[in-house]
Simulated scan of single mutants.
Amino acid sequence: MMHEEQEAEITTEQLQSLKMCKIFKDHQKDINAIDFSKDGQYLVSCDDQALNVYDVHQGKKMRTLYNKVKEIDLVRFTHHNSCVLCVTKKEPYDIYYWSLHDNQILKKFTGHTNIIHWLDLSPVSDDFLSCSMDGTLRLWNLASEYQTSDGLLDLSAKKTFCVAAFDPSGQVFAVVFLEQYYCISNNWLYLYDFKKYHSGSFQSKKINCSQVKCIKFSNNNKYILCSTGDGTILILDAYTLDTICELSDFNNQGSMIEAGFTPDCNYVISGSETGTIHIWSLPNGNQIAKLDGHQKRCKVVKFCPTHFLMASGCRNLVLWIPDQFSVDSMNNNNSRRSLMSI
């Protein structure tokens, strides 16, 4: 959830004026995931082997960590800005609980038998979930004394690809998967009570779209975002599950491109195959900006939760701020908060 200092709305004019203020060329391979810490001070990015940590208030890289044993993906900050989760891309398919402070793997969560393609952390607790090509959704807790999952939803009989996300309260999670019967395919979205998921979903709806590869709730619990493999983003009403608008006109040829919301929940941002970053306004779904700067596919783009700062990645990591904030202001300790806080 957003803090009181984040209540000011972001304007269309500010988003249209976003300019690149920092370009980091630290990765030797394409960036596959980025994430901001909950307090907005740090940003982590990873490619298959390297994990870089940046202090975005200072606009500089802090350190680089390596995992030369396994290729990694889906880096996510925990509620502590010194620890992250990430997954291994090859067998055995583990989830690493990784301390950035001393570069130690604190725990390996085990159980998945195929590629883990999605991670989401509860916004209010140490619970998190993972989705895998093995057809299962697993529920975990960072504080558990065991390395195995605390809960399991087995969708393997449906032979499906699923993604899932917690709502802002942490009390509900959504699961969406593609169900196939003969030549007919339908996406189904289910809502579960986190404490009573074993009793089944309490709400469901068929979603008319191609396979959903990314799902997120907005911070105000008003919208659910479903990004599909055919270059369409659906914005659903989080209570009725009705489609509010469809966002398109960008290039996504079936890859996992992670879209998301701005912190005020009034805009959606996404990268694309061509490297262009697209921004749409809600609830009308009008595209209000296209930002050029990446020469390759921009797979990841996220907005800082506490400051007016956006990050995006291809092989390079790029930080964006509105044009009225000079690059020098990022390096000025006295003006940084007044210029960048939202």
Rank of each mutant, 00 (worst) to 15 (best):
M2Y: 10
E4V: 12
E5M: 13
Q6E: 15
E13S: 11
S17M: 11
M20W: 01
F24M: 07
D30I: 01
A33H: 12
F36P: 03
S37L: 01
V44T: 10
S45W: 13
D48C: 02
Y54V: 15
V56M: 09
H57F: 14
N67G: 00
V69A: 11
C83D: 05
L85S: 03
C86D: 08
V87P: 04
Y97S: 10
S99P: 04
K107G: 07
K108A: 09
N114M: 03
D126T: 07
F128S: 00
C131P: 15
S132Y: 02
N141F: 02
E145M: 05
Y146P: 00
G151V: 01
A157G: 15
K159P: 02
V163S: 02
S169I: 10
S169K: 00
Q171K: 15
V172F: 07
A174I: 06
A174C: 14
V175M: 11
F177P: 04
Y181Q: 09
N186G: 01
L191D: 14
Y192I: 10
D193S: 14
S199R: 02
G200D: 08
Q203K: 15
Q203C: 15
K206E: 07
K206A: 15
S210C: 13
Q211F: 03
C214N: 15
F217I: 13
N219H: 07
N220E: 10
N221S: 04
N221L: 03
Y223F: 12
C226S: 10
S227H: 03
G231R: 10
T232L: 11
I244C: 11
I244E: 14
E246M: 10
S255Y: 07
S255Q: 15
E258W: 05
A259E: 00
G260V: 14
N266L: 11
Y267C: 07
Y267D: 01
G275I: 09
H278N: 11
S281E: 15
S281I: 08
K290H: 00
F308I: 09
F308Y: 15
L309D: 04
M310N: 01
V318Y: 09
I321D: 01
P322F: 03
P322K: 06
S326V: 05
V327R: 15
D328R: 11
N333P: 08
R337C: 14
